[in-house]
Amino acid sequence: MERWRIVRAFTLGPLLEAAVPKPGNVSRLRDFDDLTLYHFLFADTAVTGVYYEAVKTAELLRKGILEPREAGLGELIKRAVQASREAQDANPNFGIIALSLPLIMGMTIGRNMLDARKKARLLIEESTVRDTMEFYRAIRIANPKGIPSGVKYDVYSDDSFRELFQDGINLAKLAEMSCERELIFCEWLNEYELSYSTFGRLYELIKELPLEDAVVRAFVELLATNLDTLIVRKAGLEEAKLVRENAGKVFAGELSVEEFDAFMRERGDLRNPGSLADVMAVSLSLLVLRGLRIELRNGRVWGIIGRP
């Protein structure tokens, strides 16, 4: 797959995700006090150079010049997070970076979009302890909300690096331990099952609905069927379950999307979905890779797959 096609897709997908007015999220219509659409614009475009380098590294992997354990995935994630942080002062895209980079490399190594899932999982499995250490450094730079302290392999404890080395914790082992706390790790382990199923759902919805309506519907479906792990970390399990319950009420006709959005914003950013928004960003990137373009029909933007 052509280098810039991959980089463009994984740049445009997150920008679309940020722009569309989805319940509880920053969008082209709504900001939070400490996070705006501009943060996403600057952050998501700041990482393109690292994404391009990831594609070039993956080409060496495909040719057998490098082994999977030499992919340097942790270093690439850290450098992308650093580039994002240098462009703005918040954390709009750590999860997107962590999800996207293995898949970007998988797209380059694999035969097609489906094979890319398996190659991304291979890179996670073949990663090294150094990758995990660099991933920890990336977390420190991004400083996401809700990261627990005082736990084994504490991200913010310098002792964790010694513990990671002694116990041989690569990214796959880290993901296995942390899947319940962070959806991104589950996606690493299950070959991006939720991202690809959401991509498939978007592919069907854009045939029936304008692009923004299709994205909002798919996103509310995600919220109605999954717990957002960022909400769990910030506000607790019961709050995350309440979000899931109310998302289900939208499809039962008990709440409008507008009422659901108002509920999501009642407590500032505590109910702001993060992990599922990251999944949506990657799903939109897959849709772009599949050939997404837009057409204006009666003042509404529609997503079209294929050439005009």
Rank of each mutant, 00 (worst) to 15 (best):
T11P: 04
T11L: 13
L12N: 11
L12K: 15
G13W: 09
L15M: 06
L16P: 09
E17C: 04
E17D: 10
E17L: 04
V20I: 15
V20N: 10
P21V: 09
K22Q: 05
K22C: 07
K22N: 04
K22G: 09
P23N: 08
P23I: 04
N25S: 15
N25M: 12
V26W: 06
V26D: 02
L29T: 13
L29E: 14
L29S: 13
R30A: 09
D31V: 13
D33M: 08
D33I: 03
D34F: 11
T36Y: 14
T36W: 12
T36F: 14
L37H: 04
L37E: 00
Y38F: 08
H39C: 06
H39K: 07
F40H: 00
F42V: 00
A43P: 00
A43E: 00
T45Q: 08
T45D: 03
A46G: 09
V47R: 10
V47G: 07
T48D: 11
T48F: 15
T48W: 15
G49S: 11
Y51T: 00
Y52G: 14
E53R: 15
A54I: 07
K56H: 07
K56N: 10
T57M: 13
L60P: 02
L60W: 12
L61K: 11
R62T: 03
G64L: 04
G64A: 08
G64C: 03
G64N: 05
I65M: 15
I65E: 15
E67M: 00
P68L: 06
R69F: 11
A71I: 03
G72V: 06
G74K: 13
E75A: 15
E75F: 15
L76Q: 01
I77S: 06
I77C: 11
K78E: 04
K78T: 00
K78R: 13
K78S: 01
R79I: 05
A80R: 01
Q82V: 11
A83E: 13
S84T: 06
R85D: 02
E86C: 10
Q88N: 05
